[in-house]
């Protein structure tokens, strides 16, 4: 296949400071190149024609995975997605991410693709944004003006849209620790292994000492303009003992009220709603089972 993007200027900064300077200089004209697994194909199709490419692959100090405060996890924005499967800290501190990673495209893509790239790209069909929302991750953003931290809930603002400013660089993803008696699950339905899902769901739940729901988060992907939290369904479960009936009812609410999926050539809105209901039931069931065992 011929690769033929439109002309662009290409920079290879070596430090965050150089990146921030370039971003300040070029602003909206510039695109950051991380793993390139989404950007390069869209450039080759000439769907994206950025005037400036700032390649982050030579920037030092962004690829780490290290323990965060009190059981959490810090992921450098340029850490490759493949780390999520093999780095022991994920198994220990962010097992939901580890469980999700095999669903993210194919190993070759995860070898190149980065955590920061997928999150900043904010594809509504991508797994990582939904999982970040379910885990209440926080993102560190830097610009020449300074640094700020933003919760995942405020970060994803629409289709391929985030709260980042054009001169900002995502540097770190902070995954907070899960409380005791927590459980988690991720499932998706994709046409072929590694495809973008027709629908997917992530759940993170915490039980209290009486086996009642202390906290539940249920997030869908591929059913809206971004990761979609099932707020109504979650409210129904609050304080309840999550038995089969309660889970089924919550899944019903999530699919009927919390989401408003669209139709495309792969799945109708009605089919997506159906899948969302099935997946919600399955991930809640599994997450609560894990919480009870924890």
């Amino acid at each position: 296949m011929t690769m033929k993007p439109a002309p662009f200027k290409y920079f290879t900064p070596a430090s965050e400071e150089e990146v921030l300077a370039l971003l300040t200089q070029h602003g909206y004209e510039a695109k950051l190149l991380a793993g390139g697994q989404s950007l390069i194909p869209t450039m080759n199709f000439r769907l994206a024609q950025p005037a400036v490419i700032i390649d982050l692959n030579r920037v030092s100090g962004l690829t780490y995975v290290r323990p965060g405060d009190s059981g959490g996890l810090c992921i450098g924005a340029m850490a490759r997605q493949r780390e999520g499967e093999y780095h022991p800290l994920f198994a220990e501190r962010a097992p939901l991410i580890r469980e999700t990673m095999p669903h993210v495209a194919h190993p070759q893509i995860r070898n190149r693709g980065t955590f920061g790239g997928s999150i900043a790209h904010a594809d509504p069909a991508a797994e990582l944004p939904a999982v970040m929302l379910a885990l209440q991750a926080r993102f560190k953003l830097r610009s020449r003006e300074g640094e700020r931290e933003i919760p995942a809930g405020d970060f994803f603002v629409g289709m391929f849209a985030t709260a980042m400013q054009p001169e900002e660089l995502l540097t770190e993803i902070l995954i907070p620790p899960l409380p005791r008696r927590s459980g988690w699950a991720f499932k998706e339905v994709a046409r072929r292994h590694g495809d973008y899902a027709l629908a997917g769901a992530a759940a993170v739940v915490t039980l209290d000492e009486q086996e009642r729901c202390r906290e539940v988060r249920l997030v869908f992907l591929s059913v809206g303009d971004g990761p979609v939290e099932a707020r109504q369904a979650v409210q129904e479960l609050a304080g309840e003992i999550p038995g089969e009936e309660a889970i089924r009812a919550a899944a019903e609410t999530a699919a009927a009220i919390d989401i408003d999926p669209g139709s495309d050539i792969h799945a109708s809105a009605e089919f997506r709603r159906h899948l969302a209901r099935v997946l919600a039931m399955q991930v809640l069931h599994q997450a609560f089972a894990r919480a009870r065992r924890a």
Binding site: I247, H266, M281
Partner: peptide, 24 residues
């Protein structure tokens, strides 16, 4: 396709959900 089978089966697929959870 899965979507086409879903359309062909119609409402009957949804009934499957009721029995499925016990197989988990």
């Amino acid at each position: 396709s899965p979507n086409r089978l879903f359309d062909l089966l119609g409402e009957r697929v949804k009934q499957n959900i009721e029995i499925s959870i016990s197989h988990e």
